[in-house]
């Protein structure tokens, strides 16, 4: 190697700022921000706007930190899967050590700052969420059981509960129902994704339901979980955080969601391959809208309450 080559070669691990941001899974963070903010705003206790803003930010940073820990541990799986091969670690932009350091530092930072800004119950819930996602889901469940996303879904379901705890300092039926809504929504959402991304999971050796039990069983599971989710989501419409707007939105969405799940069950693989998993992809897109509109409706009820319009 000449002197010139030393000066012209680019270190593959010289990351940009954006690469570190990518470690925090910004798209997942946006969902965390939204659901945590709804949990906080739907609570019956007002919070100072700046404290609310900082609290949601710390919850998002905690969620991002668990994403970095997930990428640190799952670097081997991510490198094999098409969907994740361009993440900073498999792409060679960030070293595993840096990802681990960032994840651990931000975890501690987010928990302590949330405790100081809001209360220690909310901070404890955030710490548990990070632990659950990074250790229980990533290190244990994901590579071990096809129930990985069923149980692991709890990690994604905690943010509205943390938001609620920021405002009230406690846990109540409403926050548990918001948790349950995301918890029961996660399996059909990810199994629909797994139906049209199956080869990815198979190549990486991740025991998704499609890999271990086959597509027929996955289609059945999607319908069963959707049928459990529907009454839970509609039932939330009769609690203090809801009102006519939520109930109307929820009934319509659940009808569409159940119909989508039935359509998925009715299809066989020949049809699915022939139209490139059109129905499964549509159900997946609907699932994103489903969650967004449910929490959007809870937010609308909370926003209209001061004018005597929201709620029952």
């Amino acid at each position: 190697m000449s002197d010139a080559s030393i000066n012209t070669e680019t270190d593959p691990l010289e990351a940009e700022f954006g690469d570190f941001l990518a470690l925090l899974k910004p798209r997942v963070m946006s969902l965390v921000v939204f659901t945590a903010a709804v949990g906080l705003l739907a609570a019956p206790v007002p919070v100072h706007p700046f404290v609310a803003f900082c609290s949601v930010l710390f919850i998002a940073v905690g969620g991002g930190a668990s994403g970095a820990l997930n990428m640190w541990y799952d670097h081997d799986i991510d490198a094999v899967m098409k969907r994740t091969a361009r993440r900073p670690i498999p792409a060679g932009k960030v070293s595993r050590g840096d990802a681990l350091a960032l994840g651990l530092t931000l975890s501690g930072f987010a928990v302590v700052m949330l405790g100081l800004a809001a209360n220690w119950l909310a901070a404890g819930l955030l710490a548990f969420t990070i632990f659950f996602y990074a250790v229980v889901y990533t290190m244990w469940l994901k590579r071990w059981t096809p129930q990985n996303i069923v149980i692991g879904g709890a990690a994604g379901a905690f943010p509205p509960m943390i938001g609620w705890a920021v405002a009230t300092g406690g846990v109540s039926v409403e926050s548990v129902l918001m948790f349950a809504l995301i918890f029961m929504w996660t399996p059909p959402h990810f199994w629909a994704l797994a139906l049209f991304m199956n080869s990815d999971y198979e190549a990486a050796g991740v025991p998704m339901l499609t890999v271990t039990h086959g597509r027929r069983a996955t289609r059945r599971h999607i319908l069963v979980y959707t049928l459990i989710l529907a009454p839970l989501a509609i039932g939330t419409g009769f609690t203090a955080i809801s009102g006519p707007i939520y109930l109307a939105v929820s009934v319509l969405l659940n009808l569409a969601f159940v119909k989508g799940a039935v359509d998925i069950l009715r299809r066989d693989e020949t049809h699915a391959v022939a139209d490139k998993y059109r129905v499964e992809k549509r159900f997946f897109a609907l699932s994103l809208l489903y969650l967004f509109l449910h929490f959007g409706a809870i937010l609308a009820e909370a926003a209209l309450r001061p004018w005597g319009l929201g709620g029952w």
Binding site: N7, T8, T10, D11, E14, A15, E16, F17, G18, F20
Partner: peptide, 10 residues
């Protein structure tokens, strides 16, 4: 070098 730009951005 391009590397310095990245470092500065970071």
């Amino acid at each position: 070098h391009e590397l310095h730009k990245r470092r500065r951005g970071r």
